[in-house]
């Protein structure tokens, strides 16, 4: 008999993908924002190489915020959260299942196109693997921290801005470590420490985030 949380995870995954390109929206935003940079800064390769890593990570953070508003609000509004809560499932498991499904649906694609944007912003091609690692751990941290904001703002009508305001300061560590890892690799320096710290942020977010998001969901249902 499948564990309820796993069942919920696969349903969320299906819903996220079948939502009519719902998952592609953040990717579209990410690519669009990153391509605006050369238009703003000018095409000079060394300038783009200097600004590229920072731009990549900031737009990744903002793109991760986009799907957050509908993460819990949709289920709150149509009564699914009520039925899930009343059936005795634990809230932390729910938050974990939903956030990881949405990360797979939107976060993973974001991370996959990060190397493409990296090359477009004149980043050295050899470093594509590191860029992927940074983007994966960065988006994981952004999704699981953003999920806390999403759960807190679930009961609020236009909660998007509230999620951004509450989550962005908490994005500081992941942004610092992720972007400096990208700078290190683009300047040929040792990126190990920064990348490890970024991955540490991601793992902390995945481990602790759902706990706080679950508590916030319980409050939203009250």
């Amino acid at each position: 008999m499948a564990n309820p949380v796993v069942t919920l995870f696969f349903r969320e995954l299906r819903l996220a993908w079948s939502g009519g390109g719902g998952a592609a929206l953040p990717v579209g935003f990410y690519a669009g924002a990153a391509t605006l940079t050369p238009l703003a800064l000018g095409p000079a390769p060394d300038l783009l190489r200097a600004a590229g890593p920072g731009i990549l990570f900031i737009t990744l953070a903002l793109a991760s915020l986009l799907p957050m508003e509908r993460l819990f609000q949709a289920d709150l509004e149509d009564g699914t959260l009520d039925a899930l809560g009343a059936s005795g499932a634990n809230y932390t498991g729910m938050a974990l299942a939903k956030t990881s499904a949405h990360w797979l649906a939107s976060g993973l694609p974001l991370s996959l196109i990060a190397p493409v944007l990296w090359v477009m912003l004149q980043g050295p091609g050899a470093a594509v693997g590191v860029v992927l690692a940074c983007a994966l751990s960065g988006s994981l941290a952004f999704f699981f921290i953003g999920a806390i904001g999403a759960a807190l703002a679930a009961g609020v009508r236009r909660g998007g801005l509230l999620i951004a305001l509450t989550a962005l300061p908490l994005y500081a560590p992941a942004t610092i470590f992720g972007a400096s890892a990208l700078y290190a690799v683009s300047e040929g320096r040792d990126f190990g420490q920064a990348l490890n710290l970024c991955m540490a942020c991601a793992m902390a977010a995945v481990a602790l985030g759902p706990f706080a998001a679950g508590a916030a969901l319980k409050t939203a249902l009250d």
Binding site: L152, P169, P173, A215, A216
Partner: peptide, 19 residues
């Protein structure tokens, strides 16, 4: 909700400070 955010913030502040 505010209490939860405050505690989440409290966990993150030392990490932010260090980073």
């Amino acid at each position: 909700a505010a209490a939860i955010l405050c505690l989440v913030g409290a966990v993150n502040i030392p990490i932010i400070k260090w980073s």
